[in-house]
Nucleic acid binder design. Sequence first.
DNA 1: GGTGCGATTGCA
DNA 2: GCAATCGCACCA
Length: 177
Amino acid sequence: MVRKLGLSFYERGTLEVARDLLGRTLCRRVPGGAVLRGRILEAEAYDGPEDRASHASRGPTARNAPMFEAGGIAYVYLVYGVHHCLNVVTGPRGYPAAVLLRGAESPDGAASAVGPGRLTRAFRVDRGLDGASLLGPHLWLEEGEPVPDRIVRRTPRIGVDYAGAWARKRYRFMVVG
DNA sequence: GGTGCGATTGCA
DNA sequence: GCAATCGCACCA
C-alpha cells in the first residue's frame, strides 16, 4: 500500500525536509490520466528571508509568493526563459522556504532525470502547477524508500555563487551511486 | 515604460 | 565557450 505524504511532512524545517525528500516518490498525473512516478535523487534547500541565494531574500514578490505560504504546495518558476524549476514549499505560513528538486529517476525507469530543468521536462511540470497543492490530484509525493545516511552526500548549492557566505552552505542533498 | 539578468541546458 | 529565451525585479 503506497502512502501519499501528508501536510506534516512539509511543515518542518527546510533542511530536514530536503534530506527527507531523498528516496521519496515524485508523482505527477498528466492530462489524460497517466501517472508518472520516480524516486527523488537530489534536492536543495532555500531557507528563510536571510538566505541570499533564495528568491525570497528581497521580500515577497509576485513570483515568489508561494514560498511564503504554508508547506505542502509547489513553487514553479521559469529560469533563463527556458526551463521550469519545481520546488516543494516547506514550513509555516509567512516563513519563506522551499526545496528545489534537482534530480529524480525518470518516470519510464530508464535513465535518471538529473538537473532541475530535465526533471520538470521528464515529469511535465510547468507554471500551471505553481501554487498547486502537493496533496491534490496533479502532483504529490509518496512514501517511497527512505535513503540511509551512508549514501547521502551534502554539498554547497549549484549556480548561486552570487550569494556570498550563503553560497557555501551545504544545503544540497544527493543520493550517490 | 525600459533594461538587465537568472536556483540551466545542450551544442559547437 | 556560449546562445537560447522570457518573466520579472528594479529603476525612471
